[in-house]
Write a protein that binds this DNA or RNA. Structure first.
Lengths: 216, 216
DNA sequence: GTCTATAGGGAGATAGAC
DNA sequence: GTCTATCTCCCTATAGAC
């Protein structure tokens, strides 16, 4: 991979980044080739030199979005090493996923906004990439279960859907002036692994037992 | 409130339901008044008898979506009674929220799809309703903390964003042929309260006690 | 209440100059 | 590579008949 990009490659990436911003704000049909061209300092006709239709452009944008997240997460996990605990792997993946979707928020939000509106063939193609990313999370959870870290009856599929829903929603409210990504990632990972509740007080257990048996 | 609806009210509701379905599939700009009219067995011009613009129609749809969820959740909590535990109130609210967004999935999904594209004034108006709903969850969590059920350092704002993100995402993948709403709600509530991990023995004791005494 | 007809505006994509 | 000019199509909203 050469690091030097040709003028053509630079222009193409400029179009893609502009498309992500405009699709994010205006949705699939609301986005015009003229608006993308404006944002990329170009004229509408010129985009067709790089993408032969609006649909081909949006397909490239959708694929870029998921690939950037998957790449960030798998790289972080690799850096963490094979023998990290399930707890550490979950926090690492949560942190990486959050970092990627905040950093590339234009792509993340654009994807969420237009995904339901694009033609079926484009959606199907992108879903293949999403499935590959889902496997990354399935593996994290299954390895943790294999190590005996998880509640035995925990439902890994539901857990994965739960996690990704909460993570992806973050792009809608995250504010750089508020909590940092590390803070959010740590709190989320704590809820995921240990829950919101305080279960260290055995006194409460005894009290609960007493209450339940006396009222029964 | 009379239960008998006039012909006019019925037609108006037919238009609103049709709008939700079409906005869900085609987004804000992608939805045409002709398509909504078709779905409502009407001609495009007739919609203007009920809503004086496309924007007024979409504003009504957005408000309906959030109101239906808030109503379902507050009704369920009320039925549960004042002295229910934080654990029970959370599972109750999770279940009610899921029930509402699955049952009125057209409104839920349409809202998520078009929200970022509607004019700012419409968005602001709908955000006021969302804020009111956020308070419902803030109260649930604060009451649980007041009762000493939560980890003292748990961040209630982050927890709320986490919960609502995971819940709302459910509308995207829920399949009536798969797990039931009750199953999903129970698993989600368990993760929220006790986490995925097995290290909290006391939590499992509490649950066992609750199960045994309620089945006795 | 619901219809038809239409005014007025803007979109995607292509052709061909430079 | 990038531009201008243009073809063809479809939208929102209104007016006025029934």
């Amino acid at each position: 991979m050469s690091k030097r990009l040709t003028k053509s490659e630079l222009s193409q990436r400029r179009v893609l980044d502009a498309a992500a911003r405009i699709f994010r704000d205006n949705g699939y049909v609301g986005t015009t080739m003229r608006a993308i061209a404006d944002a990329a300092d170009m004229k509408a006709g010129s985009i067709y030199y790089y993408y032969k239709s609006k649909d081909e452009l949006i397909a490239a944008m959708l694929d870029m979005g998921i690939n950037m997240v998957m790449q960030t997460v798998t790289d972080s996990l690799e850096k963490l090493g094979e023998d990290a605990s399930g707890r550490d792997r979950i926090e690492c993946a949560v942190n990486a996923h959050l970092t990627a979707i905040i950093e590339h928020g234009d792509y993340t939000l654009a994807t969420r906004r237009v995904f339901g509106q694009v033609p079926e063939t484009i959606r199907q193609r992108n879903l293949l990439l999403r499935d590959r990313y889902a496997i990354v999370w399935k593996d994290i959870l299954e390895v943790a279960r294999g190590r005996g870290e998880l509640r035995p009856e925990a439902d890994i599929t539901l857990a994965r859907l739960f996690i990704l829903g909460a993570l992806n929603w973050t792009a809608e409210w995250f504010n750089p002036k508020g909590r940092t990504i590390d803070e959010v990632a740590h709190e989320f990972a704590t809820i995921l692994c240990n829950g919101l509740f305080d279960e260290n007080l055995s006194a409460r257990i005894l009290e609960t037992v007493a209450t339940h048996s006396s009222s029964a």
